[in-house]
Measured scan of single mutants.
Amino acid sequence: AQASVVANQLIPINTYLTLVMMRSEVVTPVGIPAEDIPRLVSMQVNRAVPLGTTLMPDMVKGYA
């Protein structure tokens, strides 16, 4: 199964992502692939992302 990117903490709206904020986990539904974690660093979330939430492409500015 493919691992997705999951929030490792509460990520406030407009926060620039860093490695410590994200982890990879096999979840349903599938979100942003874990292999894209390096690409996500320094990208901004466009909403608050609670701890344990799967990151979806529409949550990250400029990802989709």
Rank of each mutant, 00 (worst) to 15 (best):
T53L: 06
L19I: 12
G62R: 04
G52W: 08
M22W: 02
G62S: 09
Q44L: 09
A7P: 02
L55P: 00
A7C: 03
L19D: 08
G52I: 02
A64H: 12
P33H: 12
Y63I: 03
A48D: 14
G31F: 02
S4P: 01
L19P: 15
G31Y: 02
G62Q: 14
P57D: 09
N8I: 05
V45Q: 01
N8A: 13
L19K: 12
T53V: 15
I37K: 05
P57E: 07
T15P: 00
A7G: 05
N46L: 10
A64G: 12
M56W: 07
V5S: 04
P12T: 13
I32E: 00
A48I: 14
D36S: 11
I13S: 11
I37P: 01
L40G: 01
V5D: 01
P33L: 10
G62K: 05
S24L: 05
V26C: 04
N8C: 03
M21A: 07
P12V: 05
Y63F: 11
Q9Y: 14
N8R: 08
L10K: 10
K61S: 15
N46R: 07
T18Y: 04
V41G: 03
Q9P: 00
T15G: 11
K61L: 11
G52E: 12
S24V: 10
Y16D: 08
P38E: 11
A34N: 06
R47Y: 13
T53M: 09
N46M: 15
Q44D: 03
T53S: 13
Y63C: 03
A1S: 10
Q2D: 13
L17H: 00
V41N: 06
I32W: 02
L10G: 14
V49S: 02
V20H: 15
D58M: 07
V20P: 14
A64Q: 13
V30E: 15
A64L: 13
L17T: 00
T18D: 12
E35V: 08
P50E: 14
N14Y: 14
N14H: 14
K61Y: 14
N14P: 00
V45F: 01
V20K: 12
I32T: 02
E25K: 03
M56N: 08
Q44M: 13
V60T: 02
V27S: 05
D58L: 07
G62W: 06
V20T: 13
T15F: 06
V49L: 12
T28V: 12
M59S: 08
P33F: 15
I32H: 00
V20C: 08
N14I: 02
S24T: 09
M56G: 06
D36L: 05
T54Y: 02
R23K: 09
A34M: 09
T18L: 10
P50H: 14
R23Q: 05
P33K: 09
Q2Y: 11
T53E: 09
G31Q: 03
V6R: 05
A3R: 04
L10V: 12
V20F: 15
S4V: 02
T15W: 08
Q44Y: 06
V5C: 05
V30D: 15
R23T: 09
T15M: 13
G31W: 02
D58S: 09
V27K: 07
A34T: 06
V27Q: 14
P29M: 09
L55D: 01
P33C: 04
L51P: 15
G31C: 03
A34W: 10
P57T: 07
P50M: 09
L55T: 00
V60I: 13
M59V: 11
M56R: 09
N8G: 09
T28E: 14
E35N: 05
V26G: 05
Y63N: 07
K61Q: 10
T28W: 03
N14E: 13
R23G: 14
A34F: 09
Q2A: 13
A64E: 12
V60Q: 00
Q44N: 07
E25C: 03
P29F: 04
L51H: 11
P12I: 04
M22P: 00
T54E: 02
A48W: 05
T53K: 07
A1M: 10
D36Y: 07
T53D: 11
L10S: 10
M59Y: 14
V5N: 01
P50L: 08
N46H: 13
L40Q: 00
E35P: 10
G31E: 01
I13D: 09
S4Y: 04
K61R: 13
M22G: 00
A7Q: 00
V6M: 05
G52K: 06
R23N: 07
S24F: 12
V20W: 05
Y16C: 04
R23C: 04
P12N: 07
T18C: 04
L51M: 13
V41S: 08
A48V: 12
L19R: 05
N14S: 07
G52M: 07
N8Y: 05
V60P: 02
P57G: 07
L40T: 01
M59D: 15
P50S: 12
D58A: 14
N14G: 12
A3W: 05
L10M: 14
D36E: 08
P38V: 07
I37F: 04
I37T: 07
Q2K: 04
L55S: 00
T18V: 05
V60H: 00
M56S: 12
K61W: 08
Y63M: 05
L55Y: 01
G62D: 10
V41Y: 08
D58H: 10
M43F: 12
T53W: 15
V27H: 05
G31D: 01
E25Q: 08
N8D: 15
S4T: 06
I11N: 00
I13A: 14
E25T: 05
T15D: 11
